[in-house]
Design a protein around this nucleic acid. Sequence first.
DNA 1: GATGAATGAGATTTCATTCAT
DNA 2: AATGAATGAAATCTCATTCAT
Lengths: 196, 196, 196, 196
Amino acid sequence: MNAGKTPKGVKTKDRIVESAIKLMNAKGIARTTLVEVCAASGVAQGTFYHYFKSINDILYEILRIEGEELLFFYEIIIDNSPLEKLNKVLNFQMDYYEKKGKAVVAQILGNEFIPLQGDSLIEKLLPIRAFVSGIISEGQETGVFSDRNSAEKDSIVLMALILTYSYMWIRDKTDNPLKEIAGSHINDIIEQLILK
Amino acid sequence: MNAGKTPKGVKTKDRIVESAIKLMNAKGIARTTLVEVCAASGVAQGTFYHYFKSINDILYEILRIEGEELLFFYEIIIDNSPLEKLNKVLNFQMDYYEKKGKAVVAQILGNEFIPLQGDSLIEKLLPIRAFVSGIISEGQETGVFSDRNSAEKDSIVLMALILTYSYMWIRDKTDNPLKEIAGSHINDIIEQLILK
Amino acid sequence: MNAGKTPKGVKTKDRIVESAIKLMNAKGIARTTLVEVCAASGVAQGTFYHYFKSINDILYEILRIEGEELLFFYEIIIDNSPLEKLNKVLNFQMDYYEKKGKAVVAQILGNEFIPLQGDSLIEKLLPIRAFVSGIISEGQETGVFSDRNSAEKDSIVLMALILTYSYMWIRDKTDNPLKEIAGSHINDIIEQLILK
Amino acid sequence: MNAGKTPKGVKTKDRIVESAIKLMNAKGIARTTLVEVCAASGVAQGTFYHYFKSINDILYEILRIEGEELLFFYEIIIDNSPLEKLNKVLNFQMDYYEKKGKAVVAQILGNEFIPLQGDSLIEKLLPIRAFVSGIISEGQETGVFSDRNSAEKDSIVLMALILTYSYMWIRDKTDNPLKEIAGSHINDIIEQLILK
DNA sequence: GATGAATGAGATTTCATTCAT
DNA sequence: AATGAATGAAATCTCATTCAT
């Protein structure tokens, strides 16, 4: 398995990964087959095995990439105040969804529920909540956030709102942006539950 | 498709559905095969097709049954006080999920985002929020609930929590019941946001 | 097998036969299944076996009916002169096709070629050629028809023309009637080959 | 579907097609199963699907091949005299049918009436009539053929005979070759109708 | 007369994987 | 690096038929 070294190889591997992501989003992970991935990326099935040990192997690759993207963002905002960070993370998430579009987000979120390959690797895709929880903790320690509830619980409320408004946004027939639908309510909740 | 007409037929169909749910929860939906379902319910494969058009068809059947059961419940609790009703609905929902099992609930919720075929049948599955919103309105009018936030917003928070805790419960490797994971937090939120 | 005796039974049997004919015309005999026939006629599969011993059994029934229709016509024209009879038979055939319509005739003729259930029962559907041959023989004996060629060969030429013009008529995008397309040519051939 | 690219692949695909034709002629198309075809050609069932999309797909392949072979033949005989050409085309057609076998020819001709899918691919299978008509025209111009009837009408008679004798040959339980059944009659007609 | 339950054999199709080139 | 050949196990689905009611 010393594949994906030459520029051409890298390109091919990328193409396969890309097709795989698209299909997994479209049909759910467990329902995406190797045959389809190869057809979609215009590659022979044999070629697939040149780059990946098995159909499961490609999952790891995909999760690695997603994780990297998120980590990159988290590093950038590390120096802000807790409240700023909180706002930035939540906004980042909504912008991110808006950018990807309703259909894709629907699939991403749907796949959160839809049965996996048995392992919880996908879990790693959404480290946001832990991150948000950390921010709230920090705010509680520095005294700007209320500690009436645990940081964990508060983070769950916020993520829950994002999830639910995303759901409503996806179902929404008009073109109202996600931020507009969710924004003020999230701010209310921050004020009423989290800020001192 | 003239199946499931006689008492015997109904029984057989139920047995198949039951076995299917059990297996899907045990090994995941995508990995549950028709052969296994038939073996588990003790019918020939041909018999399966006497009752269902295809392997996917049984999923729809399962989801359809959900919807019917939920509607039935709503009618029953109509005479309680707003707070009682609120508690009953939320608890019912959690009990219900617990009873169905993680895999099936995952599919139900996942389908909220990824409609399997584009029909709006699934849409009907979650009329709960409107129902909860109605209950809160009623409580605000009778003065037992706070009107700091709109009934709609409050109902969204509650449903968001159910959704999110269900998600966490599905992912949870231990056997902690949903109610235990979500219960106290939901009560906190009712106290802090909704009750006067 | 004492079925189809009561008025209701006759009706049901007719409905099954009718659906079977329609389907066999539409998809070819060998490709028509009992399941489809029952679905099309709105009858349970068990009911089918109330009237027919097997899937093949219905074929006999159908052929018997067709045969009766044709024989009835032949009897009517028995007193005409050979030339009149010849004209009447050929015209009857074309009128018959015109009445059934292009799609149906296409299926009837197509099915003449398309593989059967192994027996040549269908053969009986087209006793016309033998009949035409008989008419020509008669004409040759009474001296009004030429005997340069055998009656059999001449009858083949005529049937071949009907077959081929039917084919062209079916393909024809305009609404020209079959008789108009084929008529004069068939008359030419009768004059040039058959009449003295 | 990247199959049949290497010499080995071509060979395998040919072997499958060949076995299929043989079996279809032996037992009828509708009764020939994929399992048998695979067994007869010595490939795994999976291999079949490497080359064909479905069991029906192979029929199209067979018909497509016909068309190509016919066109190829027409180009070859372009330099002969009209009468020679006429004889060669008609004989070629009959030899060709003989070589393919009754079941396959039945399917080819049946499809003339019942297009399997509505595409006009099949249409191309019978450009013979136009070709024959051209030959007769040429003969009329050079004065070797009679112009009592139009070239078109004469070509129709000839094609009609081929069609009808093919039909009779297909039905014929004995093993009499098509040429023997049709040959002398076609010659008679050429003499009596077409030659000067 | 009619239905629907039930079957089992066999048909088609899918899919992850291995291998020679 | 990439392909296409080939596989075999297992999955889905079809169908004619029997039977109890």
